[in-house]
Nucleic acid binder design. Structure first.
Lengths: 338, 338
DNA sequence: TTGTACGCGTTATCAT
DNA sequence: ATGATAACGCGTACAA
């Protein structure tokens, strides 16, 4: 591997001149610059980013910290789509992306800031962590800028990206109300998810606005898992035949509810209307295709990286981004049975 | 950020001793080691991997080079699952993963080896590239070890991971033959995919073995795209009503064929049996669920990283890994109509 | 316009 | 068992 030293020797100048020539400084004569550029080309030179980062104390690298990056995530593709957005955004601005995956086991061994410092990342985007994850506190204590996905925490150098979950849930419920449903249940995720709280809030608010009082026993807990949602829905729907619609905090859970309905010989949407959340790829292929609230996951990632890099550039400015959601009406919702 | 220099000062020793103590060398007294470890802890020290990499000339980083990393298509689910495997494998062995995405545009600007050298990766795993991609030649000319996913190229420091595509295709076709089908078409991908060639070979071999002669016009080109496959199948099935089964080189194309069948009022599987390839998540949720050849994508990634790191450790040894596939019978195949 | 000298944080060599 | 010193490749203040 050729270094600037080699180039300097070849071109008969000092390393300083080479460095300046290659970095486009003005105080180098056109003649020597040409010569240097040519020899650099000839020697197949490319700068050593490690050395550069070391001396500049800037790695131009951001860490993508994902909790439990595993196959099961392939189902909803959420992580992946967000990642695509991050990747595009980061590479637009000339930042490299380094993948850091953790799990409860690893977290015992290494603290958040250790993980980050070791890899010399300038900032971090964190995804897929629960509210009770100790890393959240670590992030707040750390001086490394961080943007969280779907966790609304703000601090000096901590921001977040999320979507308007409350309003999204309201859109879903309003859609059902408009179809004449009044006994609407909700399949929620778990208490350690920020989005769960928000979506429940939207669910309750919209019902309240419609003058329908919210029943606690109508809100189930499906752990954001398809089988769990199926099990929960199966027993619930038996006990509550009066329920004609269910709003689910995720598409995956909605698919579980659809299975439960099938096992109970409930037709979707004639007997039971279902609205999901996320608009994952699967929702379009389900039968019938799932009505859902669409989140622009790619954009979430894109904004996250944009936010982080802007925080890196200057410490003032925005710390959060909240994206809009959208109702996608497909075929799992119909007028309430009379 | 504390450095070993700080620790040395605090502990009253030299940086050399600190370095050795922290790296577990034997030639340092237990007493001073304890002291050094304590002050390191107290100062919240973590090593600067950049500096270490620089001096050791080893970054312990591998690049994951993905062509056209983007939201669209099932290719992405594939990419993601492979990535999970790579990530787990790499982190098991203490390697970091850095994401490098390219597209034709970027390739014009930077050569493969430039991309790698700049980021100082020790090795590369390449995924999602076509046979005519110029980067493949670059890889062969480069001295940076590389493992390709689904491209069977071998050289001094180039290996690959793939599955037994020929035999996979044979299993698919045999399954159809066993059900009594004889007029079996194939929806292939495009000529620039290695797997296309292999799967076609398996298709032809199995038919030949059964004494059925292969018709060129029975092999279609769906570009690995759902809509393209749908279009192709739509016209083909009209012209060839005698065909009772179709083997598809990807699940996504199989879904396209299913759409075409639906538009033609052909029942699946009663009128038309379909077998896919890949076993993507979607295939399980299609209606009816898709019979397919399952590839263990996670394992592919895991093996790829394992292969690469072993190549990094010692230059002799295995250069390739070929994984087995598996027939997953679901509900898109039935006995041939009589 | 160009070169000298130093520092970034770490490991490795050679003394002591 | 420990320390001084040189390297790794690069950027930059300062001098010329």
């Amino acid at each position: 591997m050729a270094t600037i030293k080699d180039i300097a020797k070849e071109a008969g100048v000092s390393v300083t001149t080479v460095s300046r020539a290659l970095n486009g400084y003005s105080d180098v004569s056109e003649k020597t610059r040409k010569r240097i550029e040519e020899t650099a080309e000839r020697l197949n030179y490319s700068p050593n980013s490690l050395a550069r980062s070391l001396v500049m104390n800037k790695s131009r690298t951001i860490g993508l910290l994902v909790s439990e990056l595993n196959r099961s995530g392939a189902k909803d593709m959420f992580t992946f789509e967000v990642m695509c957005g991050i990747n595009d955004s980061a590479s637009d601005i000339g930042y490299d992306l380094i993948l850091i995956s953790t799990n409860p086991d690893k977290q015992q061994q290494k603290s958040y800031s250790q993980l980050c410092r070791e890899r010399q990342v300038e900032g971090v985007i964190m995804q897929g962590i629960k509210l009770d994850d100790p890393y959240i506190q670590d992030v707040l204590n750390s001086s490394i800028p961080c943007v969280l996905v779907d966790v609304e925490v703000e601090a000096d150098n901590v921001g977040y990206v999320t979507t308007d979950n409350v309003f999204g849930a309201q859109m879903a419920v309003k859609h059902l109300l408009n179809l004449g449903h009044t006994r609407i249940a909700m399949m929620n995720g778990h208490d350690q998810a920020h989005v769960s709280m928000k979506r429940r809030k939207g669910y309750e608010r919209e019902l309240n606005d419609a003058g329908i009082n919210v029943k606690d026993e109508y809100v189930l807990n499906g752990e954001f898992l398809e089988p769990a949602a199926e099990t929960e829905a199966y027993t619930f729907l038996q006990q509550h035949p009066e329920v004609t619609a269910m709003f689910c905090a995720s598409d995956l859970m909605a698919l579980g509810v659809m299975r439960a309905a099938a096992r109970l010989n409930l037709r979707v949407p004639e007997d039971l209307s279902i609205v999901g959340f996320d608009n994952i790829v699967l929702s379009e292929y389900a039968s019938p295709p799932l009505t859902t609230i669409s989140q622009d996951k790619y954009q979430m990632g894109y904004e996250a990286a944009k936010l982080l890099t802007s925080m890196l550039a200057k410490s003032d400015g925005a710390r959060k981004a909240v994206l809009d959601n959208q109702l996608i009406v497909r075929e799992t919702t119909a007028p309430a049975p009379s």
